[in-house]
Each structure stands twice: as structure tokens, then as C-alpha cells.
Computed example of a mutant assay.
Amino acid sequence: MKNLSFRHFLFLFLLNRFKGDRTIKSVFHLLNGKRSSQTIQDIKWYGLTEFFSMLPTWKLSVFEQETKWMENHLFIINSDNKAHMTKKGNIIVENYFNNYDWPPQVNGWKYGQTAAIFWKRLALLVQCLSFSLEENRSYVPVFDDRDIQQWLKQRWPRNKKDKKEMAFHLYNELFILLDKIPEKDAFLFTHRLSGHQHTGKTIQQLAGLMNQDPDESYFRFQATLHYLLANAHQTTYLKDTAAGLLQKHVLTDTAKKTNMYLQKGLTIQEIAAIRGLKRSTIEDHIVELASEGTDFIIDIYVSNHLQKDIMDTVQRIRTYRLKLIKEALESENVHADYFSIRVTLAYFGGIHENARTLSI
């Protein structure tokens, strides 16, 4: 490894956003899309939802080698199980991102899971329309996913006139939206599509063609999908392609199950016993619910007065490190366990963020 790549710059950028409060692996889990309670909390507390799962193919073994290289070359310091950038790291990241043309829409937390399905639907739709209008049935579908093909069958136009109309409007919808983003991103997206007498290129092929880092190409391609999903409501055919994919909030399956028991009035201890899980695991689920649940009632777990004390302390000491928050509260003779602090931070750092100011 001789030079820093896009993913290294992105890693350093995010590490800096953690302000020395988290471990090196916290950034890895964020970029890799690990849906753990801690990672979910981190992306909400530090305002990093857009970067969640944006580099899912970065293997841990490779990550550890590359971050060790960055540490040896004095870009980062890793001590006391916490990591932060050096002055050298700060300078190089600032220079790289100072005039960086960020994609107009990136939200891995909101669109990460749905973007892949949306892409498969759209790519197969475009390919099938292209070949069908040329009356050519001799081609291999870009995706052989049964669910995706079934989705297309349910919407497939009955005659050539309807196919032409669909193709015409879909083209216009894509043209209007792609015309508003950086040209390189539109190029990257359109050249991944396949059609009659045109085979879509891979990310690696396009990265080479554009003289762009493959990780950056992947990042920007995903961002374009996020952009299309965010603006699909303005259209007809893209909106239909995205139908059923978007959710207002995303919960892990295990948190959903815990929520089901909570709705029945069971206590944390009762749920832990029924599910055969530790109490701390159920508390993790509740923290996740506090962040994502629109109907979550925080007062059941943390008194309004303690909520205020916790949030005031966070604003005063300007950190999300639980131990430091707890110690600062105790110095003011305020008792709060870690669960209360986590629930409060999750609640006001999640979809309820407007309920009380939370900015560091």
C-alpha cells in the first residue's frame, strides 16, 4: 500500500466525526452496515446515517491491515481502545474533501437495504423493454431473481403501444432526474444499464474507464440510487419501481420481536426470560426502539427531569461517551444508569431529534 485510497479518506473523515469517542472498528461497522445496537446508536448520535453500509465489501482482515498501515504512517493514533486522527491525518483529509463534489443524496441507513432491490427491478425493466421493443427475445436477463422477475411480470405492458409509452416516460423520468446530478454520476449509472446491443459495465470496468477509485465509484453509484429513491415520488414509473420498498423507520427483526412483547405489557425481565436473552440485550432493543419508533414513550423508562439533566450535561461536556456523561451527572449529584443515558440519547438523536436540541 503506497497511497491512501477513497475508502481510507472516507474512514479518516468518519473517524474525525467520532471526535475520539469510539474505536477504529466502530467506523468499520458503520461502513460495513452492521445492524447492531451500538452502530445504530453511533450513526444517530453523530449524524452519520448517510454513510451507513456504504462500503459493505470491505473485509475485516483487510481493514485491520490497512488501518494498521495508517497508524504506522501517523495518520491516526489508537490508544486506550479509542482512536483519533493526528494533525497529519487532519490536514490530508481536509485537503481531499475541501472541494469534494459530494453526491446530492446519500442515506445508507434509509435506502441501503432497498437500493439493491430497486436497482434490480429498474435494470431488469429497462433491459426487457429495450429487447422487447426490438422484438428480440434472445437475451439473458441481467437478474434471475425470481421475486424480481415476478414483480416485472405483474407490471408488464400488454401490447407494444403500452411498452412504447412506458419506455418513453421512464426515459424522461430518468433523464430529468439524472440531469440534475454530477455528469460523472449520471454516466456511471446509465452505463451500468443493459439493453439491446448494449451490455452494462461493472463498477470495476467503469472505474477504470473513468480513472476513478472503484470504492468511490461504488459509493457514488449507491448515492445515485438513493437520489432516485428520494425523488421517486415525483414520478410515475420510478415511483412504481420503488413501491413497497421505502419504510419510515427501520428496525432489526429481533427489536421488532421485543417490541411485540412490550406492546403486550411485559417487563424487560419477563421478555428476557421468554426469549432466553440477557436483560442487557433486551435493553439494546429498547434503545433501538427509542431511536426509530414513532410511538415510543420515553417517559416510561426515563423521567422527564432526568431526560433534561442528561441532555443538558451532553451539551455542556460535548461528548457522547457514556462513562464521561455518567461521571459528569454524578458530579452534580444526579444518578443515572447507562440504560437511562442510552435511551435518552437514542430518543433525542433519532427520529425525535426535534423534540429537544441535540448537537455537539
Rank of each mutant, 00 (worst) to 15 (best):
K161P: 01
T190V: 14
Y338K: 06
Y139G: 05
D179R: 10
I310W: 07
N98L: 12
G350I: 01
W119E: 14
S61N: 11
L129R: 11
K180Y: 05
L345G: 05
G200P: 15
S5A: 14
N172P: 01
K201E: 15
H226D: 15
F131V: 01
M210S: 14
S53I: 00
I297Y: 08
G108W: 08
T252F: 01
E353D: 07
F13V: 01
N95I: 04
T241M: 13
D185R: 09
E283M: 05
S132D: 13
L306T: 10
L266V: 01
L345D: 01
L30Q: 02
A255V: 07
I148N: 09
N99T: 08
I91N: 13
Q212C: 15
R146G: 03
G244C: 07
R22C: 00
F11H: 04
E353A: 04
A116L: 13
F219A: 14
F339I: 05
A243D: 15
S79A: 13
N72V: 08
N231D: 06
R7Q: 15
H233N: 15
G89D: 11
F296D: 11
T199I: 15
I181P: 09
Q247P: 01
A167P: 02
D299I: 05
Q315M: 08
M1V: 07
W45D: 02
R321G: 00
L228G: 13
R321W: 02
L178S: 10
T224C: 11
T235K: 10
N95G: 05
A223W: 08
I325N: 05
V314P: 02
P182Y: 04
W45G: 00
I24M: 11
S331H: 12
H233E: 15
T258C: 12
F219S: 13
Y338Q: 07
S61I: 01
F175M: 14
E216V: 07
N107L: 08
K82I: 00
P157Y: 03
K163C: 10
M210N: 12
F187S: 13
I181D: 11
H29P: 00
C128V: 09
E283K: 06
L55K: 00
A115Q: 14
D312Q: 14
I351H: 02
E327M: 07
L10E: 09
I341G: 04
D309Y: 12
R121S: 08
D147T: 08
A272M: 03
Q269M: 04
R158K: 14
L228W: 08
S291L: 10
I274C: 05
L324N: 15
N107V: 03
